[in-house]
Design a protein around this nucleic acid. Sequence first.
DNA 1: TTTCTCCCTGCAAACGTTTGCTGGAAAGGG
DNA 2: CCCTTTCCAGCAAACGTTTGCAGGGAGAAA
Lengths: 332, 332
Amino acid sequence: MSATTIRDIAVALGVTPSTVSRALSGNPYVKESTRAAILKKARELGYERNVMASNLRKGTTNIVGIIVPRINREFFGNVISGAEAVFSEAGYSVVICQTHERLEDEKAALKVLAGEQVAGIMISHSSETVSGEHILDAIGESVKLVQFDRVIEGLPGSIVINDDFKGAYTATKHLIDNGYKRIGALVGFMDTILFKRRYEGYAAALADAGMPLDPDIVYENTILRENGYESTVKAIAAGCDAIYSSGDFSALGALECALKHGLKVPEDFGIVGTANETFTSLVSPRMSSVDQHPFEMGRSSASAMIRLLSGETQGEEILIGTTLVTRQSSTR
Amino acid sequence: MSATTIRDIAVALGVTPSTVSRALSGNPYVKESTRAAILKKARELGYERNVMASNLRKGTTNIVGIIVPRINREFFGNVISGAEAVFSEAGYSVVICQTHERLEDEKAALKVLAGEQVAGIMISHSSETVSGEHILDAIGESVKLVQFDRVIEGLPGSIVINDDFKGAYTATKHLIDNGYKRIGALVGFMDTILFKRRYEGYAAALADAGMPLDPDIVYENTILRENGYESTVKAIAAGCDAIYSSGDFSALGALECALKHGLKVPEDFGIVGTANETFTSLVSPRMSSVDQHPFEMGRSSASAMIRLLSGETQGEEILIGTTLVTRQSSTR
DNA sequence: TTTCTCCCTGCAAACGTTTGCTGGAAAGGG
DNA sequence: CCCTTTCCAGCAAACGTTTGCAGGGAGAAA
């Protein structure tokens, strides 16, 4: 009942396990007729290579670890989905760990993956993570690293991030093009690269249109729905007729606030969010949002990892484009 | 530079690798002083057990495979998240595969996981899957199986499903209690156990309240937003003043339809959906929905798997409770 | 014919752990 | 003091694969 091994194939054909191994792994020093016979017999016996034994001998695995703050978040779910598709296509298995936004858990996950002898690690850091030393400690010389979305500078390997500047720029310009005159901004934490770049994109779009950048209508640390609502109260009081938001939840708060204040969206008030969460197309009026192509980010990250593993590159920085999805909330 | 092995520890202390192995794995036949010395030295040398070698020797891994239609779906994302938490706590690694609702991919995933020598497989079937023979083929005698949510009968191992009957019953009763008189139902595919049970719950609630079950206002194969809209057009024409839906997307369609027809929700028309997707609390009016506790389902499935692996049980059937989350759309 | 290549295949040693068996030493019982 | 039991540790054989080295056979060149 035990699984068939290369030895079984070998004795069945009167050759040695070495030859079978070579035939199966595509070694050129095997006569074509021998190889054919071996492949045939292997199929016949339902042979499946024992990955553990193979890996043990070769000292490396075909497992890639993915570490994210939370699996059950739309963005990360999509990234993982895209990555998994590419990895499985390329013959890699994916093991997944979540950090729950905690540095402790991130360290633990790294340890687990190191123990699992993974070939590489794809990671998006927890919000508690600020330096990358624990990463250097955990991964040896040989484990490849790809950071995506939330990245830390100064680490080896590749980086995959969104073109946040351009996304924000396009969104803001879209509002300007639709005739909105005073556009407020709901932005996140300015010490995070990602949010900073979005703010810069917003500012650049205003500048290019010859519109003033008024710090009074830029609301920082505004990422939750409640924050968005509160900040928009102030924005409306300050005479804004539109909001660019670097998140969808805060944009939703803005939408609710505007409607509550008797403003018609998009006639009186325009809104564009970021992330293109599913709900943006389900609320009414349907909300415009900057799509970050998380699935594509996953695919690209996986490809980058594969290039790293094949030695094709030592590290690269990849920018994933964004797409502004215009819906009712900003189009008049 | 190569990692330290038990042999390194052994020679450093003048004992044999056997003793070190036993000490590290908690074998009682090791003198306490010896064990202490070994543990100390192991820490000192930064020893990490080589999982591949260990698994090869033991013929089993500490990896559990999870197969789902799509990782990036809210429900499955949450299930996986819950399962991963339990598994990693118990020292198991999780590798994830997605089938994209295709039977072909499901077979491929099973093959990959079998090759990876997983200890167990947690699966929720693709929509194309109707029989379980490919499962029996793929998993050997020793691989444990836990099916969740979408299950097939006649397979070994454990099953974890929602209490669909009760969820639908409670939702329908809630509508009745709120004074709705003619309650239509949007149901899914009646050849799927899950949808069938929901339909039965709906019917039972009506029966218990002495209300007639009118087949004319039960709309099958209605799971998408568009279907929900169309079916609700008919339901309104048929004099319904409420809708129980076995999905949230179709419920959303119903909501949009009612509003479009100038009906006030919940005053004129009541709606309850199923799954408690994030967007249900984001639309207006906020939508009532049956929460299926996917996170809990993940946790329970993982626990069931661990019990299976420890031999504590041969198979069990676990029912995850549901909770009706009442929001504006059904409460008057 | 001899010698030199070039293919192909076999031999055997790894990779790092685990574990059945064996046996010595200590402890306990009579 | 001897015999039995218990405790602890070593020996060596696995687990299934890969791979460096060696060697046999066939053909070609000399």
